[in-house]
């Protein structure tokens, strides 16, 4: 026999496969975008990279699973009610985490050099990671598939599919992006935020409680991380104390790609990142998808040094 040969069996319809890869990319992109929105929001207001954001997201995954188990302990069997209670509790408690992190690690550093809060944030992210590892153990946690609704387009043999949860992820990303954009642009809180961003001293003089505004921004950012944590945990069903790091870096990349500080930019950046990773993994090679994603980032930044939707820097003399 002349060496091993690949048997000729019909391959799946390439159009369906390509469509499925696009859907995969869209979902992954929405996931990145969802985390990036919280990132970019905090950055937009106080101009600081919140390295602990990924860790907040990780904590929300734990909180969500713990509350689900707790609800089960109390004998609540109706899934929608249980989910609703759990979701609300997770968002509130994750918000408390966001608030506390800001109080402990960032507020004392307000007004100092630009790098001090960055180092403090890196320290905080180490603290949160190891705190969860100590409290909950290092093992991988799993959430069994609770709900497996799925939409399939095509025939029984060949189809493009998206699960309901994945659909919810995409919808929630778009809705929260829109809601936050509205919040920043058209509400009183939003005006306070923008004033704080432009000139903190002046905002203070005008009667805006900037400390409270910044705290609120952190709580909102953390709540966004909680929404992301809940949905993503629901989708993948597995997490550990280390997921915040990778998620944080990817979200950071997405935020910068879209122009850091811009909410639509964060979503756009996330989707571009997700699509490029998915398509590269699907069409070329899984091993190098991350290299491709980062190379794309560098390439975009060379031609647009402030990201796709970021405001161009004006050099003041």
């Amino acid at each position: 026999m002349a060496g091993p040969t690949v048997p000729k069996v019909s391959r799946g319809n390439p159009m369906y496969i390509l469509a499925q890869q696009l859907v995969n990319g869209l979902i992954l992109g929405s996931i990145y975008g969802l985390i990036a929105i919280g990132y970019t929001m905090v950055y937009g207001i106080i101009g600081m990279i919140n390295f602990a954001h990924g860790e907040i997201y990780m904590i929300s995954a734990y909180l969500f699973t713990i509350f689900l188990a707790l609800v089960a302990v109390f004998g609540l069997t109706s899934l929608p009610v249980a989910l609703l209670i759990t979701l609300v509790a997770t968002i509130i408690l994750t918000g408390v985490y966001g608030f506390s992190v800001e109080r402990i690690a960032y507020r004392p550093l307000r007004g100092s050099t630009r790098l001090a809060p960055l180092i403090s944030a890196i320290g905080m992210s180490l603290v949160l990671q190891n705190y969860v590892q100590l409290a909950q153990g290092a093992r991988d946690q799993a959430l069994p598939p609770l709900y497996q609704g799925v939409l399939r387009f095509g025939s029984a043999a060949e189809f493009v599919q998206i699960t309901h949860i994945q659909l919810i992820i995409i919808v929630v990303t778009v809705v929260s992006m829109a809601a936050l954009t509205y919040l920043i642009n058209y509400t009183e809180l939003g005006r306070a935020c923008r004033a704080t961003q432009q000139d903190r001293t002046m905002a203070n003089l005008l009667g805006i409680n900037t400390d409270r505004t910044i705290s609120l921004v952190f709580v909102i950012g953390a709540s966004m991380a909680a929404v992301a944590g809940v949905l993503i945990t629901f989708n993948f069903g597995s997490f550990n104390y280390f997921i915040g790091f990778v998620a944080g870096i990817k979200a950071f990349t997405a935020a910068v790609l879209g122009g850091i500080g811009s909410l639509p930019g964060a979503m756009l950046g996330g989707i571009i990142l997700g699509l490029s990773e998915s398509l590269f993994a699907g069409l070329v090679n899984t091993d190098y998808k991350d290299v491709f994603a980062f190379a794309l980032l560098v390439a975009v930044l060379i031609f647009r040094p402030t990201g796709l939707l970021g405001k161009p820097e004006v050099e003041k003399i």
Binding site: V9, G12, I17, Q20, Q21, N24, E277, T286, D287
Partner: peptide, 29 residues
């Protein structure tokens, strides 16, 4: 056994999303 694999790829420890890989395998039957 003279069987040649249709796909040989490495994944990264710690990744969570393998959907693209799965779709690719699906495409290869």
């Amino acid at each position: 056994f003279a069987i040649k694999e249709v796909l040989y790829e490495g994944v990264t420890r710690g990744d969570k999303d393998f959907n693209s890989l799965v779709t690719k395998m699906k495409g290869l039957n």
